[in-house]
């Protein structure tokens, strides 16, 4: 039978190389990656890529670095599935495949000139780091920047050294909290929601940007609304399982939206009525 050759598949990968790895916690590692031919990934903060290991599979992973870093990009990977566990066995020099970037990132243009209250829970810091770095690299384009970060224990804190740097800056306010801790932790202990009431902000010019585990959203949003931040100024990024990244495979569908194409970043006002969103 005559055969047709499909040479322009959307599933073809771009070659990339790991240039540096940094173990952040026993479960999480940061990978710095360079695309073949030293091309820029050219992503927006908040977008994600499909990381591909032949013979193992693909996994959607958000880009953890700002596009202002042009020669390479970073992803922060928690070892939970086939691909992510296999990634952890790789080292600098190893090749991986990349598709993307995909999805709609944070509405940076709309953030410009306004204040930001960034709320990160656990691994939610990974996509938010792309935003934070971008804001710091273009600091005068934005208003006040306030960062709240919550983790389970002090050992789970990601990017601890960078957090210390941010803490020392005069143009960012940051607070960290852990769910539980041993004696040597000097910071606050409790849920991230307890930090929000104390933040001084002007609600009409503040965007609340929230990324964290699903269970966190409901409670954080409630606190942000209590601070009178309008619903359309609350920005969320959703984690969903994705196979194609191109609005087809159906895995990431939340009612009538595809997280991979319509999101992963959404305004709260657009999704608040969707029971499948939270």
């Amino acid at each position: 039978m005559e055969k047709i050759v499909i040479s322009e598949s959307n599933y073809q990968i771009r070659k990339a190389r790991i240039v540096r790895t940094k173990k952040l916690t026993p479960l999480e590692t940061l990978f710095e990656i360079v695309l073949d031919g030293d091309r820029s990934l050219d992503h927006e903060p908040g977008q994600f890529i499909m990381v591909s290991l032949f013979g193992i599979g693909e996994a959607p992973i958000s880009v953890a670095s700002s596009p202002t870093m042009r020669d390479s990009f970073e992803i922060c990977v928690r070892a939970v599935g086939r691909v992510t566990k296999a990634l952890h066995a790789l080292d600098a020099g190893d090749e991986i495949g990349i598709r993307g970037p995909y999805g709609k990132g944070f509405p940076i243009r709309i953030f410009e000139g306004n204040d930001l209250l960034i709320v990160a829970g656990g691994l939610g810091i990974a996509p938010l780091r792309s935003l934070i770095q971008y804001v710091l690299d273009n600091r005068r384009d934005f208003g006040k920047a306030h960062l709240l970060l919550g983790c389970k224990t002090p050992q789970d804190i990601l990017f601890a050294d960078e957090l210390d740097q941010w803490r020392r800056r005069m143009d960012v306010q940051s607070e960290y909290i852990v769910d539980r801790a041993e004696q040597d932790w000097t910071g606050p202990v409790g849920l991230i929601t307890t930090l929000i009431p104390g933040v001084h902000l002007e609600p009409e010019r503040t965007f609340g940007v929230v990324v964290g585990p699903p269970v966190m959203y409901k409670f954080v949003i409630k606190e942000l609304l209590a601070k009178n931040i309008p619903e359309h100024q609350i920005i969320l990024s959703f984690e969903r399982h994705m196979k194609c990244g191109m609005g087809k495979c159906g895995r990431c569908q939340i009612q009538n939206i595809y997280t991979c194409q319509d999101g992963p970043v959404f305004r709260y006002s657009a999704v608040k009525h969707m029971s499948e969103a939270f």
Partner: peptide, 11 residues
Amino acid sequence: LTAALQGIPYA
């Protein structure tokens, strides 16, 4: 078997 040799989980 290939998953075991690769050291990755099989679901």
